[in-house]
Amino acid sequence: MRDNFRAENDVTTNAVKIAARNVQVYYGETHAIKDVSVDIEDKTVTAFIGPSGCGKSTFLRCINRMNDTIDICRVEGDIRIDDEDIYDRRVDPVQLRAKVGMVFQKPNPFPKSIYDNVAYGPRIHGLSRNKSELDDIVERALKRAAIWNEVRDRLHAPGTGLSGGQQQRLCIARAVATEPEVLLMDEPCSALDPIATAQVEELIDELRQNYSVVIVTHSMQQAARVSQKTAFFHLGNLVEFGETDKIFTAPEDPRTESYITGRIG
């Protein structure tokens, strides 16, 4: 872990990548997300924090329309990526998800080889013309996910045989291989040990060079370490959104203060 690493506040100049306005989400009768509006910037790590069940994962899944796969889920409001409404009829959720990659809480490599796991996205989106191009894409993705050195000799071993931390980095490699513009991470470290967590956090900071990263986390230390912007959710509401430093040192809302000091949640 890099002790001296701290989120830097050089993000004010970045353009807005994702703009959400008055987003409401319902699961059947339950009103899970209440009127959330937020601007997520490009080349920035944005952390969503909040107690369990506050809707942060639900909101994350709205950004790549993963909630479409849940029958009873209904999304209202407006979410724009690069000023394009992603809930517009003309948008194909399948193409949207290629542009907005996602990494899940539990590492979920496919029961295929490491190579095939990473090549999965490029193959279905036709990103390579031949085998050597695909090899390059796989190698680049694995390198970017900081796992290349560990798996370069066993690319054709099953991905499920890796350790938990390696599996999660493999899933990150799999997500970046499709060249997304936004990377959504739903508690990517909750199933990992501290060392693997440190590796993934370091990786997230590097991914910031190319992507807009949104990370849901339960650990406030993690949010403070990796993010430049932080959004605090409580009971389906977006309570406070701002610079990470400010949220953690001088929160405006009393609920935010209670949460980060450990009084609610």
Binding site: T69, K99, F110, I124, T178
Partner: peptide
């Protein structure tokens, strides 16, 4: 999780089925 992983990468339902679920 397998289906989510595949959908999250922008695969369609039948691609997910053919390449992830049926092999598994």
């Amino acid at each position: 999780a397998m289906r989510d992983g595949s959908f999250g990468l922008g695969a369609t339902q039948s691609e997910t089925l053919r390449q992830v679920i049926l092999p598994a």
